[in-house]
Design a protein around this nucleic acid. Structure first.
Lengths: 154, 154
DNA sequence: CGCCAGATGAGACAATGTACCAGGTACCCG
DNA sequence: CGGGTACCTGGTACATTGTCTCATCTGGCG
């Protein structure tokens, strides 16, 4: 438990206090800058870049330094509270994560769908037999047009 | 055809002249710096970063500027003669490409296997139905230990 | 409440890549 | 085969995305 967190629990969205508690459980302190980053992350509509996070925080008038934002984002990634998303051109956006998951990203507007069952097990087994590799991780992202962008494009 | 290329065709590996001809066909000039980058790329054992390319060229005593190397690499990517490979941490390595392909990369030594049949069609269809997205591209990379690294690790 | 390990933040630095522009050169064409 | 020109070059400055250092501060614990 964190006294700092308890003192402002009432003023924070549940999503933020939830994440903050996981920080405490992992042995990290709950601090102003970290709460600010959590607030910013939960406030983003979809996946976000660190730059977007910083702009949002500046707009709120409570941006900690760039270094602190990057540090916090990295920490959250290490704890699997954030997930890195890779793009075809633009690498490294981030999204709040709930375990293993992949993303289907609209190349036009950035809308994002998560999917968990990536159906890659068959491929993995087949390749392990074929190549002798022991496969331990995979990176799968899909890209296309979301229904709305398809409609406006037509 | 390129006079410049023809003049030094004898002194170049076939892989380089082959790529250079594809530059010509696409309407680009064959120049010294571009040939140097092609030589460097074909000389790499596996996937490479732009930095590694530049180090190799410097070691050969014929490095064009960093800007030219990046420009050439980007051009080759645009022409699908090079393929960008995405990693979990380190993004953006490059490899000579032959069409659509994915990679199985050793997280320990960087060894790489290409595979073409990624068996993702079923997943794509299923997700298109489910989400209404029109899926046009995908990013799939697998990571693990190659046979040699598994042996030395054991 | 006071101590202190851990967190902060300003700024330097690093890696990767793009923009600009004066000067150079491969290629087309006659 | 040589000239004109569109394209290419390379050096430098700059942009983006991070990381590192270090003096200072603060949340958590006793």
């Amino acid at each position: 438990m964190s006294r700092y967190l308890d003192a402002r629990r009432e003023t924070l969205p549940a999503a933020v206090t939830d994440l903050a508690e996981q920080l405490t459980e992992a042995g990290y302190k709950v601090t102003g800058p970290r709460l600010a980053v959590l607030k910013a992350a939960t406030a983003q509509p979809g996946a976000f870049s660190v730059h977007e996070l910083e702009q949002w925080l500046i707009a709120q008038g409570e941006s900690p330094g760039t270094a602190s934002i990057f540090r916090t984002v990295r920490l959250l990634c290490d704890l699997n509270l954030l997930q890195r998303i890779h793009g075809l051109d633009e690498c490294h956006r981030y999204s709040l994560s709930k375990g293993h998951g992949h993303h289907l990203v609209c190349t036009n507007c950035g809308a994002m769908e998560r999917f968990d069952n990536c159906g890659v097990q068959g491929l993995v087994q087949q390749l392990e037999q074929h190549t002798g590799f022991r496969i331990s991780a995979h990176l799968i992202e899909l890209f296309g047009l979301c229904p709305r962008c398809r409609a406006t494009a037509a």
